[in-house]
């Protein structure tokens, strides 16, 4: 099942909400608030959500995007959910490493690996 969304492509399958970003530059400051709001609605609408954010379409992000992800992660945890990130390119993963957020988030090389971890729960 795929739901239309202005900034996100959301697919629900096997109990996991798989989210891709619709635009390569979507994680820039101008769009962050809207993306954060969309993800908030998704998390609030599903108790104990298992959420996978796939970054394969993303080639840039800023500290505002990191802030949005940190806030989202807290919200998911508060609701007994689980957030995973996947398919982060080398340059963007470097940003996660610099900010040490690679320790806060559960990051997998591929969506398949992330999904496999979910299914073991």
């Amino acid at each position: 099942m795929e739901q239309p969304s202005s900034h996100l492509k959301i697919r629900h399958a096997d109990g996991v909400a798989q989210v891709e970003f619709a635009d390569r530059k979507i994680l820039e400051e101008l769009s962050i608030q809207e993306i954060g709001d969309e993800l908030d609605r998704l998390v609030e609408g599903t108790a104990g959500i298992r959420l996978l954010l796939n970054f394969r379409n993303v080639d840039h992000l800023s500290s505002a995007a990191l802030g949005m992800l940190v806030t989202l992660n807290k919200k998911v945890k508060e609701r007994n959910g689980e957030l995973r990130l996947s398919d982060i390119n080398r340059q963007i993963f470097e940003v996660f490493k610099i900010t040490k957020l690679n320790r806060l988030f559960e990051i997998h090389d591929t969506a398949e690996q992330a999904l496999a971890g979910f299914s073991r729960r």
């Binding site: 800023s62 500290s63 990191l66 802030g67 949005m68 940190v70 806030t71 992660n73 807290k74 940003v95 610099i98 900010t99 040490k100 957020l101 320790r103 806060l104």
Partner: peptide
């Protein structure tokens, strides 16, 4: 320092560090 344990979950404060890096 946005990477310290007490600040790692703050949404803000990483921009200056990234510029420096």
């Amino acid at each position: 320092d946005p990477t310290s344990d007490e600040n790692i979950e703050r949404p803000n404060g990483r921009g200056i560090m990234l510029m420096q890096c």
